[in-house]
């Protein structure tokens, strides 16, 4: 579903020179997989995730999603391709002046859906995340966990093949975290949506990932398999992350 081929991304340092956030990285993520990106802060996890929908443009390499090299697309085609890639954020990033229902409707308006289709799809998605009764509330009236559910419903609305989630539970308490993870797991199982999730917590990997890439200093150190909550890690780093959990 997602193939990153020899991706590089560097940022200009404020004090001059360059900083390699992602160095020559290749990664393949299968359709229907829940794939984790784990590593310490500053390892390049968010940058790698944002390279998948080209919020960051790679300096080198190809980003192939669903058979299409996104780096080769014209702006209009890229916008269309992005409708196939939902995104969920740590800080939710909801539109404060839109109701819950209108937030979920937003990507559908962008994609040019009809009013009737939007209404039906919004109701479906709110039901998936269990927020039917909050449709007419504004984000400010919701708890953190509820806001993230809106974020997930919004990402799910255009029936994407992939959902990218950047630390979706890092702003939430442990109990809410589990319910959000269950929600993502549920969506993956029911609709076969590929999920790529960035986290610094091994607990998150154990609880929903099928596989995970361990990142350090912009490089993939190891790709680990997760089976029945057991992480089969070889690298020193993966083991230390495992113990930290």
């Amino acid at each position: 579903m997602i193939h990153l081929q020899n991706i590089r991304k560097r940022f200009r340092r404020p004090e001059g020179g360059w900083f390699d956030a992602v160095r020559d990285t290749s990664l393949s993520i299968a359709p229907g997989e829940v794939f984790g990106l784990i590593g310490f802060s500053g390892a390049g996890k968010s940058t790698l995730l944002r390279l998948i929908n080209l919020l960051e443009r790679p300096d080198a390499g190809a980003v192939i999603v669903d058979g299409q090299d996104l780096t080769s697309l014209a702006p209009r085609e890229l916008r269309r391709a992005r409708q196939n890639l939902g995104m969920v954020f740590q800080q939710f990033n909801l539109l404060a002046n839109r109701t819950v229902a209108d937030n979920v409707a937003f990507p559908l308006e962008i994609a040019g859906w009809s009013r009737a289709d939007i209404e039906q799809r919004v109701a479906e998605c709110l039901e998936v995340v269990g927020l039917q009764d909050r449709a007419n509330h504004y984000p400010a009236q919701l708890s953190g966990g509820q806001k993230q559910r809106v974020g997930i419903a919004r990402a799910l609305a255009p029936r994407p093949k992939v959902i990218l989630a950047d630390e979706p539970t890092s702003a939430l308490d442990p109990k809410t975290t589990q319910s959000i993870l269950d929600c993502l797991k549920d969506i993956n199982a029911r609709f076969g949506v590929t999920v790529v999730i960035v986290t610094h917590e091994m607990h998150v990997v154990r609880s929903i990932c099928h596989r995970a890439a361990v990142l350090d200093a912009g490089e993939v150190v190891e790709v680990v398999d997760v089976a029945e909550g057991q992480v089969d890690a070889r690298s020193e780093l993966a083991r230390s992350l495992l113990e930290a959990a």
């Binding site: 919020l55 916008r79 992005r82 409708q83 995104m87 539109l95 404060a96 937003f106």
Partner: peptide
Amino acid sequence: VVEAAEAMG
């Protein structure tokens, strides 16, 4: 928030 909209296309 702007970035979220960009990500949605």
